Amino acid sequence: MARILIVDDAKFMRMTLSNILMKAQHEIVGEAENGKQAVELYRECLPDLVTMDITMPEMSGLEAVKEIKREFPHAKIIMCSAMGQQKMVVEAIEAGAKDFIVKPFDEVRVSEAINRILL
């Protein structure tokens, strides 16, 4: 069981991920709707894993990954992206994200990505 921070500007997406993760016995330690909140919540909660949307207001997921990794080099972050954002996904991986999952979320793919990263 992992402590997970969910970051997405769409409440529906946060809810969807939250349901998938709780079904897999994970604990949701926080939810953020932009990169700035994500960085603040990461510092507060120190989660085992973060699911991070790429496109968000105030601070993008890409910027948030860079900031979190600067402070916490061992942070485990999975990017969440809509189709057609491959270039951003590559940038996110270069910035330190461990993997990415594509929206709409596939329960099996989400669980596989999380289990692989937590091992």
Rank of each mutant, 00 (worst) to 15 (best):
H26T: 07
V102Q: 11
G35Q: 09
S60E: 05
S60D: 13
F105S: 07
K103I: 06
A82Q: 06
I117F: 00
M56A: 06
I78Q: 04
F100H: 14
E67Q: 14
D8A: 10
D53T: 08
Q25D: 14
I6D: 00
M13H: 05
E91Y: 01
E27G: 04
A24W: 12
A24N: 12
N19C: 09
Q85M: 05
E31L: 12
M79D: 03
L21S: 11
F105C: 05
K98R: 09
V65I: 15
T51C: 10
T51A: 14
P57G: 03
V90N: 09
M56I: 09
P104Q: 10
A113I: 13
V39G: 11
V89I: 14
E58A: 09
F100K: 02
Q37K: 13
M15S: 11
M59D: 05
R109A: 14
K103Q: 07
S18F: 09
I93Q: 03
A75I: 09
N115P: 00
E94G: 13
A113Y: 05
I54H: 01
E33Y: 01
I28P: 03
M22L: 10
A2K: 14
I68Y: 06
R70C: 02
S60I: 01
A24I: 13
I54F: 02
A64D: 05
A75Y: 05
K23T: 15
L5F: 14
L46M: 15
T51Y: 08
Q25H: 14
A10T: 14
L5M: 13
A75R: 02
G84C: 08
D106R: 08
I68S: 00
D48Q: 10
Q25F: 03
R14G: 06
I77T: 02
E44P: 01
A38V: 06
L118C: 08
N115Q: 14
I78P: 02
L21P: 07
E33H: 03
N19Y: 14
M83D: 04
A82K: 02
M22V: 15
M15E: 07
E94P: 10
M15N: 09
E107S: 10
I93L: 15
L119A: 15
K87T: 13
D48C: 11
I101A: 03
V102I: 15
D106P: 10
N19P: 03
L119V: 15
F100R: 07
F12H: 07
E58K: 12
V110H: 09
K23D: 15
M88T: 06
G61D: 09
I68H: 01
F100W: 11
D48F: 05
F12L: 13
G35M: 02
S18L: 10
S81F: 00
I4C: 12
E71S: 12
S111A: 08
I68W: 07
E33A: 03
A82W: 01
D9M: 07
F100C: 11
K36R: 12
M79C: 03
G96A: 04
E63W: 00
A24C: 11
I28S: 07
E67F: 00
E58P: 00
R3H: 13
V89F: 08
R116Q: 08
T55S: 11
V7R: 08
I114R: 05
N34R: 04
E44Y: 13
E112T: 10
M59I: 07
M59T: 07
V65E: 04
E27S: 09
I28Y: 02
K76C: 06
E112N: 13
G35A: 05
V108F: 06
V7T: 11
H26R: 13
P104V: 08
K23I: 06
M52G: 07
D53I: 02
H74C: 04
